[in-house]
Design a protein around this nucleic acid. Structure first.
Length: 492
RNA sequence: GGGCCCGUAGCUCAGCCCGGUAGAGCAGGCGGCUCUUAACCGCAAGAUCAGGGGUUCGAAUCCCCUCGGGCCCGCCA
């Protein structure tokens, strides 16, 4: 068929053709009436070694993982979503010639169905004593090595299906991710939040400082950025009276990739009218505690996940942004320093951000350098200097600060929340101050958002959570690519 | 963008320091085996050593470039 066919593939393709020639379709349409493997295990639990239940025929289906042949007896390991079950084949239990045929034409990696009866092998392994085999899909390409699985990191990312089929741990991880995201939804639903969907394609990408991906609308003849945050559309919904909204969706940032940054990533953002950042903190602590409970049974074999579950159980540490930065750096009276002084301090730690950056940028650099690497355990950093944060409301009692918290774990940020700025004139001023900074990555000026605020947004709190990073935290994984099924990789 | 490391059979690895013409296991082929579970035993087969260039009588091995990947740093919510 293909030019790059390997001898192995030629051999397997020949088996498929041989079966076809015998009137057996190697890719049939369906296989109804099968039961999951754990169902058979249950039926076997009352049987003694060597015993079987002839009155209870069962049908199973899955991927053939291994095949051990002993002359006129053979054992196969069949894997389905419930686990594995052994197939026990004996020449004298099948129609004449069937045993030899399947020995010849079956390979590890094939998708097969089996009819038989629950049986426990003499060595005590729960099994299906097979009467008939049905090939459900011939695997032309061989599976990864049966014991070590797929080790090559690049191959695991580029060909995730191989990683999944070879690794029960990978399957368990992504099942856990799915379940944890579902738990996030249920938690917010129970708190009366409304799930909404806002646009990925926008006239202006705002709500954060990052370079967007830009595509083009032929109809509008206009460049259209993909969202870098979900924030501004969701706040418009508070203006519209929806009061409690959230969205779980993909955001896109055209930046470098590393172990905690993916160009497309999943964000959870929630906005809550008539509440402030103290309320939001209680909500998110409750959510983390809930997720910590749920991840424990999902990944019982992962010591890292079990440790992470403890780490995500409240109470959590709290540090004041300014106090902690001053304590760690030894710098005094940070808030009294002008932009020139802050620039010098940032230069002193090797930062290379542009000279024209605003004071907030330099403060962020100092915090990243002196504090963030130390935030190993789950920590809430609170009350940032206002110059770092254009979308938050000024602190009700601390001058020069905003009402904000960020959550850190293992040295990276998990999320960010404010008491939201809802004064339209101040919002406009803050946007304009940002524009004064260096081009590139300033917060984009969203004129329609300011206009929306002029119609009145109730006092509110909001939060953005990096879902992939929370999943990393809860599952104890090292790289964001480990929790994304198909991470972006360089074409080859 | 800078530094370090990796790329050998479909898969998992050895060989590289110290140059001498590529080795094992799994999977696949042939043969044997009626209770194995990383089954086992025997035989045969399978490799542009990521790609290109250089040094050398001789390069998987030493040097340079390119491609792909990982980690760290820088940049980046």
């Amino acid at each position: 068929m293909t030019d790059d066919e390997t001898p192995l593939e030629r051999e397997r393709r020949a088996k498929a053709e041989r079966l076809r020639g015998e009137g057996r379709e190697p890719y049939p349409w369906s296989f109804v009436g099968r039961v999951p493997s754990d169902d058979v295990r249950l039926r076997c639990s009352t049987l003694a070694p060597g015993e079987e239940a002839p009155g209870e025929p069962v049908r199973v289906a899955g991927r053939l993982k291994a095949f051990r042949v002993h002359g006129k007896t053979a054992f196969g390991d069949l894997e389905d979503r419930a686990g594995t079950i052994q197939l026990l084949l004996r020449a004298d239990s099948m129609d004449a010639g069937e045993f030899e045929r399947w020995l010849r034409d079956l390979d590890p990696g094939d998708i097969v169905g089996a009819d038989g009866v629950p049986a426990v092998s003499k060595r005590g392994e729960p099994s299906v004593h097979v009467r008939a085999i049905t090939l459900l899909a011939k695997a032309i390409a061989p599976p990864p090595e049966k014991f070590h699985g797929l080790q090559d990191v690049e191959e695991r990312l580029r060909r995730r299906y191989l990683d999944l089929l070879a690794s029960p741990e990978t399957r368990a991880l992504f099942r856990a991710r799915s379940q944890l995201v579902r738990e996030m939804r249920q938690y917010l639903d129970a708190a009366q939040f409304l799930e909404v969907e806002t646009p990925v394609l926008l006239p202006v990408a705002g709500g954060a400082a990052a370079t967007p991906f830009v595509t083009h609308s032929r109809y509008l003849d206009a460049d259209v950025p993909l969202r870098i945050s979900l924030e501004l559309p969701l706040k418009r919904l508070l203006v519209g009276g929806l009061e409690r909204v959230y969205e779980l969706g993909r955001a896109f940032r055209n930046e470098d990739m590393d172990t905690t940054h993916s160009p497309e990533f999943t964000e959870l953002e929630a906005y809550w009218a008539y509440a402030d950042y103290h309320d939001m903190r209680r909500l998110v602590e409750g959510l983390f505690g809930h997720l910590a409970e749920r991840v424990r049974p999902l990944l019982p074999d992962s010591a890292a996940a079990q440790q992470a579950a403890r780490d995500f159980t409240p109470p959590f540490a709290t540090v004041d942004f300014v106090d902690e930065l001053e304590r760690r750096s030894g710098i005094r009276d940070l808030l009294a320093k002008g932009v020139d002084e802050l620039r010098e301090l940032a230069r002193g730690i090797g930062s290379t951000v542009p000279d024209r950056s605003g004071p907030g940028v330099f403060l962020d650099k100092l915090f990243e350098h002196y504090v963030e690497p130390h935030l190993e355990r789950l920590t809430f950093v609170v009350d940032h200097p206002s110059v770092t944060t254009p979308l938050a409301k000024r602190h009700r009692s601390k001058p020069g600060r905003v009402e904000r918290f960020e959550m850190f774990y293992r040295g990276f940020e998990l999320g960010n929340a404010y008491t939201e700025l809802n004064d339209p004139d101040e919002q406009e001023r803050r946007f304009r101050e940002q524009l004064g900074g260096p081009g590139g990555d300033a917060y984009a000026y969203d004129a329609d958002f300011v206009r929306a605020l002029r119609h009145g947004m109730p006092p509110a709190t909001g939060i953005g959570v990096g879902v992939d990073r929370v999943i990393m935290g809860l599952t104890g994984t090292a790289s964001i690519k480990d929790v994304i099924l198909f991470p972006l990789v360089r074409p080859r």
